[in-house]
């Protein structure tokens, strides 16, 4: 692509990554969550594939595979945390530890990032899964049928 497109991509890249991370991180407070933020970050992968070409991102395939495994395993293990009561029992909610604060007040409130127990961790697990999944789909589609793919 032309130098204008490449420069604009370099400007947009950190902003888009930060927005995707924000959507994943605040999934238990604001609209959005793991799937939506992961799709935002996967669109960054699509942008890079369009601008720089898939061949230069070939090395990311292995990283995507690792991320997909880590996300899936983390999600299932977090679900198994509550197996003492039921599968998917939210044991960290209200425990006072990690993400263990109660909501500041019932009803409308400014929100506290350190709440909701396993929900933020599961959001990150699903977010990693969606980043790796959609990113590798875009990458594989761009590499299909090429000699150097």
């Amino acid at each position: 692509m032309s130098v204008v497109v490449r420069t604009v991509t370099r400007v947009i890249l950190p902003v888009a990554l930060a927005f995707g991370a924000y959507v994943i991180m605040h999934g238990h407070l604001t609209p959005g969550g793991g799937f939506q933020g992961g799709a935002v970050i996967a669109s960054v992968v699509a942008l890079l594939v369009v601008v720089y070409g898939g061949a230069r991102l070939k090395g990311a395939k292995g990283w995507f595979a690792v991320l997909e495994d880590v996300g899936a395993l983390a999600f299932v293990l977090l679900a198994f945390l509550g197996i003492g009561a039921t599968f998917f029992r939210n044991v960290l909610a209200g425990s006072g530890g990690l993400f263990g604060n109660p909501v500041p007040q019932p009803g409308p409130n400014p929100g506290d990032l350190n709440t909701a127990g396993t929900l933020p961790l599961m959001n990150w697990a699903v977010g990693l899964k969606v980043i790796a999944g959609l990113g590798s789909v875009v990458l594989l589609l761009s590499l299909f049928g090429r000699e150097d793919g």
Partner: peptide, 16 residues
């Protein structure tokens, strides 16, 4: 809000 301690009720349904 009281049970899952999450403001986003949709997320508390989806993940809990």
């Amino acid at each position: 809000q009281a049970e899952v301690a999450a403001n986003n009720v949709v997320t508390s349904i989806v993940f809990d």
